[in-house]
Write a protein that binds this DNA or RNA. Structure first.
Lengths: 214, 214
DNA sequence: GTGCAAAACAAACGGTTGTTAGGTATGATC
DNA sequence: GATCATACCTAACAACCGTTTGTTTTGCAC
């Protein structure tokens, strides 16, 4: 329910040609299809990318016409922000749960966190995959919003790294960048049915925990 | 000089409406502007991405008109393949040079390789940056060509990892995926003027070489 | 069951897209 | 200096883009 993407209601119609955001709105009907629209958009943005997905594609995926989308969202960019926010929300929820589950030690907890991140990213959710696939700077007008959402999530991840028992010289920032980069890039080479997200998370964390050198 | 992207010459014109590849072509003139076109395309693909760059953008960047591009390239996709190939070539050249430079040990050699990879990726070349920025599956019709080019490069990288002295249980494949992922993803957070590619390479390799755990 | 806003449809808008066809200037080759 | 392919320009094509407008249907509150 992304209020920020909503347009004004007919009673409060703005001057023609200008999209406006609404402050108050009557209760939505039970049969509205915002969720179908979001789901269709998430699926298409993930499959084809933002640029190669047209509003007509999304509309037809949700079983309606292109113009109707503008009742729920002010623009294509607004729709992307809504999908992106939902995606960040889902990743955050999954990772939060993994971070507060019982673990033998901070390293195992980090492994759980990585596994949850990877699962969301690779298999669980179209929304989550959009967060990784769509570059904020592809859409300059909302890029700031998108990066803000992403940064907020990364703090959850940082916390798991802050809890690690490292020796004094260790570089936690580099560790976070390296791990998160490796995880996010996996979207380009991952193929379902091979190594599971959980397995990959274990391998990556082990590489950092135990020295690879002989 | 991407022969595969060339269109047929007027003397060998194919049926209208069909693009064709040419086998033989007379010597190109010295004053042609293919390189300007490639450079403009590389710059724009890097800045705005493939989808958001129009043929008119590229043409104007090279100081000519959109239609003229089709004398040199059969399609927008063909132009992308040419840029991509040049990008892979440049990364490979830089990394090859780093790999054959003198090094104290295999780990230092790997660090040199990573630094060269990062420099190409983050600063040196528009062409190289396109290779990381543009997803092959964004352009289904040439995706296979693009991934083939990318895979060919990764073998150079794998060789540097194969030379590492690791203990028996170590997972070289995971190590390669992790390192390459971390390096490639850096394009999303790297800002010039902060840590140099060389510094980042040193940090990442050290995290793998020496255990981070206390 | 009447009233009213929610939520959709239907049809178009101006603009941009990749691409093509035909014409023309230019530099090299003989 | 004539010839001819190279390398561009000019102008258009049909298709598609995101978005707007006016109208119609439909669920819900009273």
């Amino acid at each position: 329910m992304p209020a920020l993407a909503r347009k004004s209601a007919p009673t409060d119609r703005p001057p023609a040609g200008r999209a406006a955001v609404r402050a108050l709105r009557a209760a939505p009907r039970a049969d509205n299809r915002v969720n179908d629209v979001l789901a269709a958009a998430a699926r298409l943005f993930r499959e084809k990318g933002y640029a190669f997905t047209s509003m007509r594609d999304i509309a037809s995926g949700a079983g309606m016409l292109a113009g109707s989308l503008y009742y729920h969202f002010a623009s294509k960019e607004g729709l992307l922000v809504a999908v992106y926010a939902e995606g960040v929300g889902r990743i955050t929820a999954a990772v939060d749960a993994a971070a507060s589950a019982p673990a033998a030690d901070p390293w195992q907890r980090l492994e759980q966190v990585c596994a949850a991140h990877l699962e969301a990213l690779l298999e669980a959710s179209d929304y989550a995959q959009v967060v990784i696939r769509v570059r904020p700077d592809d859409v300059p007008e909302v890029a700031a919003q998108l990066t803000a959402l992403r940064d907020a999530y990364e703090k959850v991840f940082s916390r798991a790294i802050a809890a690690l028992p490292l020796d004094g010289r260790a570089d936690r920032r580099a560790l976070k960048l390296m791990l998160l980069g490796a995880l996010n890039w996996s979207q380009t080479w991952y193929r379902p049915g091979r190594d599971s997200p959980r397995t990959l998370a274990r391998r990556f964390v082990r590489l950092l925990r135990e020295s690879a050198a002989a």
